[in-house]
Amino acid sequence: MDFDAIHMIWVRDITRHFRDKVRLLGSISRPVMWLLIMGTGLRATFSIPGVSYSHFIFPGIIAMNLIFAAMISTISIIWDREFGFLREILVAPIPRSSIVIGKALSGSTVAFIEGLFVLAFAPFIKINLSVAALFLLLPLMFLVAFVCTSLGIVIAARMTSFEGFGVISNFIIMPMFFLSGAVFPIDNLPHWVNYVIRMNPLTYGVDLLRWASLGINTFPLYINFLFLLSFASVMLMIGIFEFTKRD
């Protein structure tokens, strides 16, 4: 493990992220649209016992900002390959695993911060989060961000164009988001959908976030953690393999 390399990649990605002011706009407009427009608009059609619809989707919207920001952050890998900076990193005397871990941590950090923007909307839809709930929610948000970033790294490492990444990530982000229980409850769904939902890591992430913020969960907590951690480990291993192989 090369901490200098992880540190460098992390600081560089964070520096770059905060220099790009337009990206901040997207991370604020997404939750506004979903929470305030969809949340109030669909309230009448959805009835979930014991919880209002805008409360129900709140953890889902956090997960949405996490997965969007995490996937977008990994575009930097394609960007760096296209503009040559990746070569500067690849010829440096650092292990490939540290490059991947550095990328995973910087992507998770950026996504985590974008997740915080959604948290700031909690008072507007009258969700009262206790300090204890907040302390549970924050590390869980980072975990979900980390899982999404590790998936993004595997996709970006195999991609050679921005356009390709856009198509693939839309094919992945949207279904993952809609089939995760983020915007509707996942019980009482047709059998095949159920199957897809159970393969989706975001399902377990949303379940954990909903447990921490509203006290509702569909799966046992240990199942959630087990699935997320094993998924992230497998993705990291594939990512390291992709970076290690030389032609």
Binding site: R16, F83, G84, F85
Partner: peptide, 13 residues
Amino acid sequence: GIIFQDPSLDERL
């Protein structure tokens, strides 16, 4: 040390 034929700086930094 290498000076690549194509640029390899991070131009945003």
